[in-house]
Design a protein around this nucleic acid. Structure first.
Lengths: 109, 109
DNA sequence: TCAACTGTTCGACGACCATCGTACAGAACT
DNA sequence: AGTTCTGTACGATGGTCGTCGAACAGTTGA
């Protein structure tokens, strides 16, 4: 059943760029699991991946938690495709709001 | 009182650039108090400031804790001058290790 | 010498965080 | 129908974090 976005849709809302706080973004990126998620996304820029395709070494529930932290911070965007929840980097919003931040973090060895 | 690992100097050792981890640096910068410290330091680049000159709205012990987190992460360097412990941004080391990171964080509005 | 000043250390507290297993819900495919 | 797959929600747990006050140590200056 095709459902409209406001009434019954799951809450996948990301913050607007103006509402994104740099402390929150930095906190989201300061966890090794979440950083690996972001780096995986950056490696295939523009594409979206299912949660299970990251090869994370944590449980399903923990992974789900990390994706939510990244989404709430405004780092990623998610949308449902069938039984998959696809995750995508919010590259444009991030670059506009915090120029250079994402690149420097991703490039960090 | 202050532990001495060499002869008489207090233990104010910072990590070598090669030992600095980006997750740790991001975690250090993700706290509002510590971020304000870094921004204050960046505003007067090259100068060092005493801990009390930051106008932090936390207790002495809490402030001391935050300076230590920044120092352990490699973000700042400290040295004693009389009864003041001076803090300075490790701009060169940071820029060499994580190019663009500090600038993007400081510039974030 | 003594007092004031600067900052650290200690112990404690509450809050938050990363983690997990279980249960659950929707979608796809027999 | 049922089964499998993907991911979320819930509740719990152990650890870390930010915070404070009190006590302490070193320096400076009266």
């Amino acid at each position: 059943m095709a459902r409209t976005d406001t009434a019954t849709a799951p809450n996948l809302a990301e913050p607007r760029p103006a509402d994104m706080r740099v402390e929150t973004v930095l906190g989201a990126l300061s966890d090794p699991v979440r950083l690996s998620i972001v780096r995986t996304l950056a490696a295939t820029e523009g594409e979206s991946r299912s949660c299970g395709s990251f090869g994370l070494s944590v449980s399903k529930s923990t992974a789900s938690h990390h994706f939510r932290v990244l989404r709430d911070a405004g780092v990623v965007r998610q949308h449902d495709e069938g039984r998959h929840r696809m995750t995508e980097l919010r590259r444009a919003e991030l670059d506009a709001r915090f120029p250079g931040l994402l690149d420097s973090v991703i490039a960090a060895v």
